[in-house]
């Protein structure tokens, strides 16, 4: 494989992102998203209650937390897919409160979904082309005159195929997206989001269900995005991945931000170990479950 010929180069993490102590809600040097007092309740349950949160620009931020912590709900709120009870937030200096989802996406904030949304009865290539912005052919009147949009369509196709090749989906370009496996759909959704050339991508568990070999290249792609100047905010449960690519980690529990910091520091934070990692994070699973003792393993 090509990866053995060119071993991935270690890429430097972005540092110096914050100002002052790394406490929840800490100020960032150059924030792209600033959240203030966003609260969302479902009946009696407070799903999200974020006093203050800043997401650093051109960095990879991981959002972690136990199941039901409110990560997906926060994603939905920030991208206009859900409305908060109260609170406001800005993206790139512009207020996003009350802005509908499609407009947030046009402003450059594109998200993917935890439960993948491949458009099954469109081909993989059509899925990709749908991701591009400002298409002349998508306007009702110009759509019936192909000469107005054919050239743009061809350019999009080239760009789409490049991305598909990168995500190892090029052989599937003409298949219905419904024929893809779960992991391939995750890849397609991410590639499709990139077709819109966003300034920031929010990925909800992009690695869930993707096999380890592909995860490695997916992580490389995410690091590439940062090199290209994009900001990434992603939800992930696998701490190895978070450690590997995140420049900054935000920890949520029960709707609140309970910790923030550089990955290495956050993982040592007692509040995080408590809320999320559990006391056994460094111990082999077999030991935790009593299937074998530490001595067996050695």
């Amino acid at each position: 494989m090509s990866s053995s010929a060119n071993p991935p180069v270690a890429r430097a993490k972005a540092t110096g992102l914050h100002v002052g102590d790394a406490v929840p809600g800490v100020k960032k040097v150059d924030p792209i998203i600033v959240v203030d007092g966003v609260k969302r309740t479902f009946g009696g349950l407070t799903a999200v209650d974020v006093d203050h949160l800043e997401v650093p620009r051109n960095a990879i931020t991981a959002l972690i937390g136990p199941n039901g912590a409110g990560k997906t709900t926060l994603f939905n709120l920030l991208t206009g897919f859900d409305k908060p009870d109260s609170g406001s937030w800005t993206f790139d200096g512009r207020s996003l409160s009350g802005v509908p989802a499609f407009r947030a996406a046009r402003m450059g904030l594109v998200r993917t979904f935890q439960l993948t949304k491949a458009l099954g009865l469109l081909t993989v290539l059509e899925n990709m082309k749908l991701g591009a912005k400002d298409q002349t052919g998508e306007k009702f009147l110009s759509s019936i005159f192909p000469f107005l949009w054919r050239k743009q369509e061809e350019e999009l196709e080239v760009r789409a195929m490049e991305l598909l090749t990168k995500f190892k989906l090029d052989a599937k370009a003409d298949d219905f997206a419904a024929s893809l496996s779960g992991g391939q759909r995750k890849l397609l959704e991410m590639a499709r989001a990139l077709m819109g050339q966003p300034t920031m991508v929010m990925l909800d568990e992009p690695m869930a269900g993707v096999n380890p070999a592909l995860t490695q290249s997916l992580l490389e792609h995410i690091l590439d995005l940062k090199d290209e100047g994009m900001t990434v905010l992603f939800v992930e449960h696998d701490m190895h991945m978070v450690r590997h690519i995140a420049d900054w980690v935000v920890v949520m529990a029960e709707g609140r931000i309970v910790a923030e910091g550089a990955p290495a520091d956050v993982m040592k934070n007692p509040a995080v170990i408590d809320a999320y990692l559990g006391a056994h994070q460094e111990i082999d699973l077999g030991v935790v479950t009593g299937r074998h003792t530490p001595e067996d393993k050695a």
Partner: peptide
């Protein structure tokens, strides 16, 4: 795309 999943299409702007 809307027929398949309108939220996905919304997310694409």
């Amino acid at each position: 795309g809307i027929r398949e999943d309108e939220d996905a299409v919304r997310a694409l702007g």
